[in-house]
């Protein structure tokens, strides 16, 4: 019973944070600075999440570095998301077999 209350609080707080700005902010932003800021934020967020975390992501620096290199090369040549993601994982896996 108590666990259900915990889960409900988690769900409601998390949902409200996502829902309120998404639903009620319907105005178009005019400021060029804010527009530029919102334009760059996704890339900054992704970069922050990826580096340095990607090097810790497999529990082994060598397999992670190989996976990162594979992903970088394929991403550079514009391969689809799924191809790059699977290449990172499978090259890390194969490297893991040898060390």
């Amino acid at each position: 019973m108590m666990t259900a209350a915990y889960i409900a609080v988690m769900a409601v707080v998390t949902y409200m944070i996502r829902m309120i700005p998404f639903t009620f902010f319907t105005k178009k932003i005019r400021s060029q600075f804010v527009k530029s800021l919102l334009y760059y934020i996704p890339y900054a967020v992704l970069s922050t999440m990826t580096i340095p975390a990607i090097f810790y992501s497999t529990g082994n620096y060598i397999t992670a570095a190989v996976g990162t290199a594979a992903a970088m090369i394929l991403a550079y040549f514009d391969f689809p998301l799924i191809v790059v993601a699977l290449a990172a994982s499978s090259s890390a896996f194969v490297t893991g077999l040898f060390i």
Binding site: Y43, L46, S47, T50, S57, G59, T63, G67, Y76, A85
Partner: peptide, 24 residues
């Protein structure tokens, strides 16, 4: 465990696929 470990890098690989092409 080896499979779980290798799957750990999957999302980061996808992130690179999103940021590298436009950064070029």
């Amino acid at each position: 465990g080896s499979v779980v470990a290798a799957l750990g890098i999957l999302l980061y690989g996808m992130f690179l696929a999103i940021i590298v092409p436009p950064a070029r």
